[in-house]
Deep mutational scan, measured.
Amino acid sequence: NQASVVANQLIPINTALTLVMMRSEVVTPVGIPADDIPRLVSMQVNRAVPLGTTLMPDMVKGYP
């Protein structure tokens, strides 16, 4: 099973992602692959992302 990117904390709308905000976890449904975490750094979320939420491609501005 492939690990996905999961919010490690509440991420407010328009926040630029940092490594501490994300963790990898095997979840269903599958979200953004954990391998993409380095690419996500400094990209902004377009909505508030609660703790434990799987990051989906449509939540991150400019992804992929």
Rank of each mutant, 00 (worst) to 15 (best):
M21F: 05
S4L: 02
G52C: 03
Q44N: 08
V45E: 01
I11A: 01
L40P: 00
R39W: 07
K61T: 15
L17T: 03
D36F: 15
V41L: 15
V27N: 03
M59R: 03
M59N: 06
M21T: 03
P64R: 03
Q2F: 15
V45F: 00
A16I: 12
P38G: 12
L51H: 10
P50R: 11
G62F: 06
V26K: 14
V20E: 10
N46D: 13
V27T: 09
P50H: 14
V6E: 01
M22D: 02
M43N: 05
D35F: 13
I13P: 10
I37E: 03
N1H: 14
S42H: 15
I32E: 01
M21W: 02
M59Q: 04
L51C: 05
A48N: 11
D35N: 14
D58T: 09
A48T: 07
T18V: 07
I11H: 01
S24Q: 09
R47Y: 10
A34W: 09
V20H: 08
M43V: 07
I11Q: 02
P57L: 05
N8I: 09
K61F: 10
T28W: 15
A34Y: 09
R39Y: 11
A3S: 13
S24A: 15
V45C: 04
Q44D: 04
R47S: 09
L55C: 02
S24P: 10
V6T: 07
D35I: 15
S24G: 12
A3K: 12
V6R: 03
S24Y: 09
L55V: 08
M21E: 02
N46C: 03
V30G: 05
Y63V: 05
S4Q: 02
E25S: 08
N8V: 08
K61C: 04
R39H: 14
L19D: 07
N14H: 14
N1A: 12
L19E: 08
Q44G: 04
R39A: 12
V30Q: 12
G52L: 04
L40T: 01
L10V: 11
P12C: 04
D36M: 13
K61R: 15
I11V: 07
P12V: 07
S24F: 06
V60M: 05
T53I: 07
V20T: 15
N46K: 10
N8M: 09
G62W: 12
R23D: 05
Q2N: 13
K61E: 15
M43H: 09
L51K: 14
